[in-house]
């Protein structure tokens, strides 16, 4: 027994594991906060797009010896802006715009990285490598996550109104455009942070799955955020911890955990889950069955009365 416990605590003996766990939790929580909004507006793919679109920024930063986050952030902002402009100026649908912008930038990123393979590890960018994160990067990630969480804690209700009913948001004097810019800036910053943890390919899961899971569990936006953040933090921390034993890519473990929780919510959620709605529908049928029974009873009585009246 003691042996097992000791075994389970082994990851905490390693400095790199401790760092990986808390950094993952921080990033997971921040992304989950944003996911509450993204998933609602049908912008889920935006997260994916940003994750890929910042690759050229990272590649250029690596070549120039600049901090990864700076390059990624510039590229992310550029991508958001490009998507916004193409969307405004053309009648292309959102998904087409997103697909167009992010594949172009991702292609550019791969091209740059492949021209200077020594400076840039494509593997690290695409899959992330939290276990080998440098202290410098930890500071970057922590600052990004801390600032994002603080801003979101201040503005979450204003953003909720803006995304729910923009006309009303304006009518109460909110600066809608500024709020949207702030949101997408934070999103860009957080995808940069998530890139380090789970890699470009899985960023989308971090900014969609927790929110989607929470959506199945509540009808109130405030609670949705709370649940989403709790899911993000716990799955990320546990995922990082488990990856020590599984010897697997941290990102893969985290996202798999999030998916499992989503599936659980999908089936068992008290109001919006599959089982609950089946139960409710059965209850609804039950009522009609009762109504049918009542009708049968009435018909039977009428038949008896008719027979009594008849000679």
């Amino acid at each position: 027994m003691d042996g097992l416990l000791a075994e389970l605590l082994v990851p905490f003996d390693y400095d790199y594991m401790r760092k990986a766990i808390w950094v993952s939790a921080l990033v997971g929580g921040t992304c989950a906060f944003l996911s509450a909004y993204l998933m609602l507006k049908g912008w889920s793919l935006m997260g994916d797009a940003l994750g890929h679109a910042i690759v050229p920024g990272v590649a250029v930063a690596a070549i120039l010896g600049a901090p990864f986050a700076a390059g990624a952030f510039v590229a992310g902002l550029f991508a958001s802006l490009a998507m916004y402009v193409v969307r405004q100026k053309t009648k292309l649908r959102e998904d087409a715009v997103i697909g167009l912008v992010f594949t172009s930038l991702f292609a550019l990123g791969l091209l740059i990285a492949s021209m200077r393979p020594t400076a840039v590890s494509i593997q690290t960018i695409v899959l992330g490598n939290i276990l080998a994160i440098s202290d410098e990067d930890i500071v970057q990630v922590a600052v990004i996550a801390g600032v994002s969480l603080a801003v979101m804690a201040l503005l979450w209700k204003d953003l909720m109104v803006t995304f729910f009913d923009e006309a009303h948001a304006r009518s109460i004097g909110l600066r809608v455009t500024t709020l949207k810019i702030v949101f997408f800036t934070l999103l860009s910053a957080c995808t940069v942070a998530a890139l380090q943890t789970v890699g470009a390919c899985l960023v989308i899961a971090m900014v969609v799955t927790p929110g989607a899971t929470a959506y199945l569990l509540t009808d109130r936006f405030g609670r949705l955020i709370g649940i989403s953040v709790a899911l993000g933090v716990s799955t990320s921390a546990v995922g990082a911890y488990l990856s020590y034993f599984l010897d697997g890519a941290t990102g893969g473990v985290i996202v798999t955990l999030q998916t499992l929780l989503f599936l659980a919510a999908f089936v068992f959620a008290p109001r919006h889950g599959v089982l609950a709605s089946r139960r409710r529908r059965a209850a609804g049928l039950g009522e009609t069955r009762e109504a049918a029974r009542a009708r049968e009873a009435i018909q039977a009585r009428e038949a008896i009365q008719a027979r009594e009246v008849a000679p």
């Binding site: 507006k41 109104v161 009303h168 009808d219």
Partner: peptide, 30 residues
């Protein structure tokens, strides 16, 4: 906060996880 607007119904996202009372409370934000 002088103007209140009652939108044409197609302008609102009806799937948004807010309750009726939350929506009315949004009127007080200003």
């Amino acid at each position: 906060n002088i103007v209140a607007y009652v939108p044409q119904s197609e302008d609102v996202d009806w799937n948004f996880p807010v309750l009726v009372e939350d929506v009315v409370m949004m009127g007080r934000y200003g």
